[in-house]
Nucleic acid binder design. Structure first.
Lengths: 230, 230
DNA sequence: CTCATACTTCGATCCTAGTCGAAGCATAGT
DNA sequence: ACTATGCTTCGACTAGGATCGAAGTATGAG
């Protein structure tokens, strides 16, 4: 054999449907308890416990004990990113889980993608920023926030500078599995998402990745993020 | 259950050690035959055939029949990227395959990472470009080729403009599992790698990801990619 | 102190999936 | 035509792991 990172280990961890469901649920960014995750995966508490032990052992999730609950979180940004890249790949290859839930249309409309907004409205925001040259594709094909974009975001109540931390890219485009188009990720994507919650325009549906907009707040959002020249 | 991409399917495909080995081997970018992949994974031809069928069925690899051989390639850039992100994650979490081969030091020195140069020398090139401001971190934390970098690459025999195609980012930083630092990926990284082969400085070791440099050509490379201010 | 809840550990069961031997096709060379 | 090589299909074997019931530990509530 040869040397190298053991992708089989991580792959097999993600490869079990129960664990994949748990990880997907944790992509919401929320800390979830062992029982919630068990329910999410449709398995009993014992089985879930065993799965979570393995995930924690491999360093994919962190556990925090609080009272008699035990909360789990993705241990790292990188875990979320890796999951996203797998999701993108799976979607591109047409591997979708069959059992389409009742809230599916809502999920396509708007949902959290790890820690930012995805779905129809997520793509809309990205397209709007692009059409106004608030973000531009950099020479290298990635994207970059312009000065006008900086000013725009400040007027929307976000300080992009403060939200840029350490390693994390400020802007990043993230492939959307429902739309098959790109939306805004990175710390700026996160900041916009938080601001939408703060304004009360968006509300996260309990125990789901769905983000709900009232019809008026959806109008607000469309007005705030217009698409020029179209 | 809920809707979404089926990451469990892809995860389980990558999760088998034999398949993981095959995919890793295909990260070299070369087309490999079924028997070569079987040897790589240390399994018999029958077993390999079954595995390759599954990978092809899921759209992770493509097969091309040529004579009585059947060549396999990663079907897509995205597959390589997803594998890379898993490798980065695995390395970061310290999950390394135990069986360290005899050519391990060479592997750390220089190797192909999907389609560009990684390892000690790959990191060196990246650092050099960075120290001379030939690439700069963009505002968003990603990286961007500067005008001086463009000129520099042209003098090295590469036309960055022509190498930029469609979707693919021109420059991209890729986390190195051996160095735990970044090296240059994207179409520019690919172009540099090709140029090194073309110049005869680098040679790919047969049936391996190791890239070999003679001591003189390594000196050439270090001279061509100096690190300023240090 | 007693009871309920949240979670883990242990043990047993069951089933999937990886594995290889043998045989079957296909292609190439002579 | 005959043989060798590369690969796939079939069938059977086996091991690893996912699962849950039951029992055990910790925390909180009354």
């Amino acid at each position: 054999m040869r040397d190298g990172p053991d992708i089989a280990l991580i792959g097999s961890l993600i490869g079990d449907p129960a664990r994949a469901n748990m990880l997907t649920a944790l992509m919401s960014g929320k800390a979830l308890t062992a029982s919630e995750l068990a329910a999410e995966a449709g398995i009993t508490a014992q089985t879930a416990s065993s799965h979570l032990g393995k995930l924690a052992n491999a360093g994919l999730v962190d556990q925090r004990k609080q009272g008699r609950h035990r909360y789990y979180v993705l241990s790292d940004d990188d875990v979320g990113q890796a999951l996203e890249s797998l999701m993108g790949l799976a979607a591109k290859k047409g591997h979708l889980r069959v059992r389409t839930g009742p809230n599916d249309p809502a999920l396509r409309k708007a949902r959290v993608c790890y820690d930012h907004l995805a779905g129809d409205l997520g793509v809309r925001i990205y397209d709007s920023l692009l059409s106004q040259s608030h973000v531009v594709p950099a020479d290298d094909g990635s994207i970059r926030l312009t000065e006008s974009g900086d000013a725009f975001l400040q007027s929307f109540g976000i300080n992009p500078a403060q939200s840029s931390r350490s390693r994390r890219p400020q802007c990043r485009s993230c492939l959307d599995w429902s739309e098959r188009r790109y939306h805004l990720a990175g710390s700026t994507g996160h900041a916009i998402y938080l601001r939408l919650l703060e304004l009360g325009w968006a509300q996260r549906l309990e125990a789901s990745r769905v983000i709900q907009f009232s019809s008026s707040s959806e109008k607000n959002l469309l007005a705030q993020f217009p698409i020029l020249n179209g």
